[in-house]
């Protein structure tokens, strides 16, 4: 009996070890793909050095999945998406999309970078209150009190400010045309307001 128990414990242990190894192998395959392909633009561990490309570390998984699907089916059509991501996402299957989203969501996000004080202050007011008279909702309502994002609403904290400005400009120009709320917001914001709110979000 004792021996049987011991054997069972050993068996359970081996199964646990094998499955954990299996999981590790799956994760490392995703990590390897991310290092070999995605990191070329998005940086090692999702911290891109260039504001031409967004930081992905700590981004919410549902948002990343949605964007990868939107690149693949070409419903997100801003100029940078067309030039880079339509091609890159074209052969990703649903499993790989989920694995990549999970991989980047789990990485520690970049710290915020301080912007010009006056601009950040103006951005904070806009972020927390919106423009009620213009019908622009407060950013905080969806993107969270620290711009940390929430499910489908992306994390903005620690992002490159010029990247955020460019996305707002894409919404305004209806080039990134698969997000009705953000298109409305983009329509109402001036370039200065975009720069201010981006500087605030990037500083979080």
């Amino acid at each position: 009996m004792k021996q049987m128990l011991r054997r069972s414990a050993l068996f359970v242990g081996l199964v646990a070890l094998a499955s954990s190894l299996g999981l590790a192998a799956e994760d490392s395959e995703t990590a390897h793909y991310a290092n070999q392909v995605c990191s070329t633009c998005h940086g090692v561990h999702g911290n891109s050095p260039s504001s031409a490309f967004p930081r992905l570390a700590g981004q919410t998984a549902p948002y990343l999945e949605t964007q990868l699907r939107a690149f693949k089916d070409r419903s997100r059509g801003d100029p940078a998406a067309q030039a880079y991501m339509w091609g890159m996402a074209s052969q990703l299957d649903e499993d790989k999309i989920k694995a990549l989203a999970k991989y980047y969501a789990a990485l520690p996000p970049a710290h915020g970078t301080a912007g010009p004080a006056a601009r950040v202050a103006a951005g904070r007011a806009l972020y927390e209150q919106g423009l009620p008279e213009e019908g622009v909702p407060a950013c905080v309502a969806c993107h969270g009190p620290n711009a940390e994002g929430n499910e489908l609403y992306p994390r903005l904290a620690g992002q490159h400010a010029p990247y955020l400005v460019k996305q707002l400009a894409y919404f305004k120009a209806l080039q990134r045309s698969n997000q009705p709320i953000m298109q409305l917001v983009g329509q109402k914001l001036s370039f200065e307001q975009m720069e201010a709110v981006a500087a605030y979000a990037a500083s979080r």
């Binding site: 070329t40 260039s50 067309q82 030039a83 880079y84 091609g87 890159m88 074209s90």
Partner: peptide, 19 residues
């Protein structure tokens, strides 16, 4: 092969970008 535009790899050909 990559499905990416020339501008991904080149500023203006043949000069390479970081990517």
């Amino acid at each position: 092969q990559t499905g990416m535009a020339c501008e991904a790899c080149h500023t203006i050909f043949p000069e390479l970008t970081s990517f």
